[in-house]
């Protein structure tokens, strides 16, 4: 059985706690990654988001372990024993420590501000090889393509940078395809934009993420990401269906 030192400032305490914090950080990090499965994974813009999220998780695991291990250790080691009526050790603070735990978080904040800025840039930029306008209204979506095609589902070619213009006609809505990552509000009176480069073929859902009234929960439309040939074929078929002259593009 480990014999713990009496004095609270003995180095032995901190060695033990340090080791426990290390173990707890690893365990907690993997636990959090397991219970927080970030489902944003099928677009170029989702990558930096997932990366930053996981970086956060490890920092959180460390800070959570640090505080909780220190706390639990103190609760056990410094609990009042049965026949001990003495008071706790008398120290009122330590300015060096306070400065240290002000400055280190400040440095972390600066680092994360920089990383956050870069990640934000990567998660919001892209090209406009494909353009589509998504119009949200209570409680459905319509998608307008520049060539005049109007669709109830959104179809995009895979791996092509798309610029989605967003417009609301009544109240505020928000455009969110979980698998793509970022979301963007649609605000009456202005046009907002988002860049998405889908990287996986498949059928997804765009769901309204801003409470917009009675049927907000069911304001859902289908989003299909298809190979480029299929996209062209679909577009041509729509042009014919909707009787649009290709020349007018």
């Amino acid at each position: 059985m480990l014999k713990l030192p009496q004095s609270s400032t003995d180095r032995k305490h901190f060695v033990i706690v340090g080791a426990l914090v290390f173990v707890a950080t690893i365990a907690l990090g993997f636990f959090l990654l397991a219970i927080l499965p970030v489902k944003a994974q099928y677009s170029v813009q989702a990558e930096p988001i997932r990366w930053l999220f996981q970086l956060h998780v490890w920092l959180i695991a460390f800070l959570f372990a640090l505080v909780v291990v220190f706390m639990l250790y103190a609760l056990i080691v410094f609990r009042k024993r049965k026949d001990d009526d003495s008071e706790g050790e008398h120290f009122e603070g330590n300015t060096t420590l306070e400065v240290v735990w002000t400055v280190i978080p400040l440095i972390l904040v600066i680092i994360f501000s920089f990383i956050g800025f870069q990640t934000l840039r990567d998660a919001t930029r892209g090209g406009d090889e494909v353009q589509v306008e998504a119009v949200g209204f209570q409680w459905a979506w319509t998608f307008n393509y520049p060539n005049g095609v109007v669709s109830q589902e959104m179809v995009l070619p895979v791996n092509k940078p798309a610029l989605i213009s967003l417009r609301a006609t009544d109240v505020i809505h928000s455009f969110w395809v979980v698998e793509w990552g970022p979301k963007q509000d649609l605000v009456p009176g202005m046009t907002t934009r988002m860049h998405i480069t889908p990287t996986k073929v498949g059928e997804f859902k765009v769901r309204c993420a801003e409470l917009c009234g009675l049927s907000h929960w069911s304001m859902v439309a289908t989003v299909r990401v298809v190979p480029e040939e299929e996209y062209i074929a679909w577009m041509n078929q729509k042009l014919v269906e909707q009787n649009i002259q290709t020349a007018s593009r």
Partner: peptide
């Protein structure tokens, strides 16, 4: 992000308060 700094001061100071005490629960 700056909010984290004064909040951190609180957490760490609480740990400092517990450390070396005669804790009852």
């Amino acid at each position: 992000l700056l909010v984290a700094v004064p909040t951190g001061v609180k957490f760490f100071s609480w740990l400092g308060t517990l450390w070396g005490g005669r804790l009852t629960f």
